[in-house]
Every structure is written in structure tokens, then in C-alpha cells.
């Protein structure tokens, strides 16, 4: 009987000590659920150029082209060659309902030289699209 009492008391104190922990964990959980945005990871890690530009896109891009530092091109998460961009864009454009708002985002690494991007822009232009944006990240402190 005495032993059982002792254990009962011990269990109670254990749970009591855990309550602040759960409080904190719940607070963090709620914070991350509310403040965070779940987003698909890029097919390859890319660090876009930092810029003071603070313009955010209103809608999600219809097509996302990722250009990595190793000059590989990913179109909507698939590794493509330069020649495959135009047909892919055209088929995407055909499937889209709201053709007015169709836009292409190019997320290129800051170290990618412009001559890698030039043929990509040419392909996009050849497929008849004009709304193209480059992804940048906000520079926290101006140099």
C-alpha cells in the first residue's frame, strides 16, 4: 500500500513537470503552422541573386524554370534540355485556363552567367510568351 502511494505521487509530479514543456511545444507548433508556408523544395539547391527589389508575385508562376550553378535546367522539377523548353511551355499554356495571367518564373543561381540564361529567354520568346520574371531574394541590409 505504501509503495503504491509512493508511485502515485511520483507519477503525478512527472506529468506536472511536463505541462510547461507541452505548452511551449504547442506554442511553437501553432507558430510554425500559422506563420510558415509549406512549399515544394527546389530540385537542386539554388541561391538567387540578392537585391533590394521588394516586389512579390501575386499569383504562383505557371511554369518555374530552375537554373542551377551547374548549368542544368529544370522545368517544373524535371531536368530538361534547352530544346525541350519550348514544347513544354506551349503545352502548359494550352492547358491553362487563365491565359492572361500566364507567367514564367526563372529561378537562377546568382552565379549563373548571363549567356546561360540568354538561350532560355530566346526559347521562351520563341514560344510566344512575354511575361517572365527572375527570382531574387531580399537583401536585408544594403551594402
Amino acid at each position: 500500500m505504501k509503495i503504491a502511494d509512493k508511485f502515485a505521487v511520483k507519477n503525478k509530479t512527472d506529468d506536472d513537470a511536463m505541462v510547461p514543456l507541452i505548452n511551449v511545444v504547442f506554442l511553437m507548433l501553432v507558430f510554425f503552422m500559422v506563420a510558415g508556408q509549406i512549399r515544394k523544395a527546389d530540385p537542386i539547391p539554388v541561391i538567387p541573386p540578392s537585391s533590394i527589389n521588394d516586389h512579390k508575385a501575386v499569383t504562383d508562376p505557371n511554369v518555374l524554370i530552375v537554373v542551377g550553378g551547374n548549368k542544368q535546367i529544370y522545368l517544373n522539377d524535371k531536368l530538361v534540355t534547352l530544346e525541350a523548353i519550348k514544347p513544354a511551355l506551349e503545352s502548359q499554356f494550352k492547358q491553362t485556363q487563365d491565359k492572361e495571367k500566364f507567367w514564367v518564373q526563372i529561378k537562377a543561381d546568382g552565379l549563373v552567367p548571363v549567356e546561360i540564361l540568354r538561350p532560355i529567354f530566346s526559347e521562351i520568346r520563341a514560344s510566344g510568351l512575354t511575361k517572365v520574371s527572375l527570382a531574387t531574394q531580399l537583401q536585408r541590409e544594403p551594402k
Binding site: 511545444v25 510558415g36 517572365v132 531580399l138
Partner: peptide, 20 residues
Amino acid sequence: LLFFMLTSSFVPWRTVDAPL
């Protein structure tokens, strides 16, 4: 908590228009 911490991104990309 781990799931939300790892999948959240707090830096939305900014965009620069380069109209063709």
C-alpha cells in the same frame, strides 16, 4: 512540430520582371 519546421519557408522569393 518537426514537420512544420522543416517544410516552412519564411523567405518568399521576390520577383523582377524581365518582360520580353
